[in-house]
């Protein structure tokens, strides 16, 4: 009995967005008379955090506190069009639309503030804490709440903005495949360390070292959630998951979470991840899509680590103990 250790590497890129049919999303934003801002969307939060990151982008652009921004989603009677939450598009597309809407709303807000303060709008800055003041003169300022009230009750203006982001449709040239299918690329590299039981083919993933380039981490804690959860899904895909364990034979498809195999809390690997940032030219504050990519580099890294450990190259997913053991048997001269 031996437990064989190995290490494998993989590096990948991942496209942000889809646009083979055109890829738009809209956002509307308005200030309430309580000095808060409401972003209206028809976008979906699956847990990735658009309700959080969208508010951050709006707060950043408006120059107001995060807590004063609310997101109202998703109702097709009130929310403007969104293609949906998929293709790592949410933060990029919806974020861009929110940023554009927030810019427009900010312009009105600054304009009203300038009128109230009797200064030039170009001389005003936001402090991010709920006040607008003359640049360099924090005392000469006005609360965002008062600007909102003045706009509504004195000036007859709405502090609001419309946002739209469209990646236009790209036709594919049928002969060559020439196309423009995405907006930017995120990147990842994983180094996996595994241990293989040479009598059973069981694999333990000991450690995953990951580097992710994600444009800009809008919210590092949420990015970290995607990284850890995605890397876990990568381990899961590499070693466990399938709806058809005897593919292409359809027998014995799992029906519940007992039969459908995924690593449990007792099977998680030590994880060391680092984020690097190369802001995209077209994402809001340089953001790229991160959600999907995180699962991808661990899979081949584990496959390569298994080869490194025991000399068995498994070329079909999932890499089950059975496939490894058959390979080990073949190497030992006992083909089955």
């Amino acid at each position: 009995m031996a437990r064989l250790k190995g290490r494998g590497v993989a590096a990948v890129n991942y496209p942000t967005g889809m646009n083979l049919g055109g890829d738009p999303s809209q956002a509307l934003i308005h200030a309430t008379t309580t000095g808060s801002f409401v972003i209206t969307l028809s976008s979906v939060d699956l847990g990735q955090g658009i309700k959080t990151v969208g508010a951050q982008i709006a707060a950043e652009t408006l120059g107001v506190p995060y807590e004063s921004v609310m997101i109202d989603t998703a109702d097709t009677d009130t929310g403007p069009h969104c293609m949906g939450t998929f293709a790592s598009r949410g933060t990029h597309r919806i974020g861009n639309a929110i940023m554009m809407a927030a810019k427009e709303a900010r312009e009105v807000m600054m304009c009203v503030a300038a009128t109230e303060l009797e200064v030039d709008a170009g001389d005003l800055v936001t402090d991010g804490k709920g006040r607008i003041h003359v640049n360099g003169a924090p005392d000469k300022g006005i609360a965002v709440l008062d600007v909102a009230l003045a706009a509504h009750f004195k000036h007859g203006k709405t502090i609001s903005g419309r946002g739209m982001y469209l990646k236009p449709k790209s036709e594919v040239v049928p002969e060559t495949g020439e196309m423009d299918p995405d907006s930017c690329q995120a990147h990842a590299c994983t180094i996996a360390e595994v241990e293989v039981d040479d009598e059973t083919g069981d694999v333990t993933v000991l450690k995953m070292t990951n580097a992710y380039e994600i444009g800009r981490a809008m919210n590092p804690a949420l990015a970290h959630q995607q990284i850890v959860g995605g890397a876990w899904m990568g381990i899961s895909h590499a070693l466990y998951e399938t709806t058809e364990p005897y593919y292409p034979n359809r027998a014995h498809g799992p029906l519940d979470f007992s039969e459908y195999l995924m690593p449990g809390p007792g099977d998680i690997a030590e994880m060391d991840s680092v984020i690097i940032e190369r802001p995209s030219s077209n994402g809001p504050y340089g953001a790229k899509g991160i959600g999907e990519m995180t699962a991808n580099s661990p899979i081949p890294a584990i496959a390569n680590a298994i080869f490194d450990a025991c000399g068995v190259r498994v070329t079909s997913m999932p890499i089950t103990p059975e496939k490894i053991l058959r390979g080990l048997d073949a190497l030992r001269g006992n083909p089955n």
Partner: peptide, 13 residues
């Protein structure tokens, strides 16, 4: 110079 973007603010949900 970003203030809210780049911060690990609490999840809204």
């Amino acid at each position: 110079e970003l203030s809210v973007v780049g911060e690990s603010v609490q999840r809204a949900d």
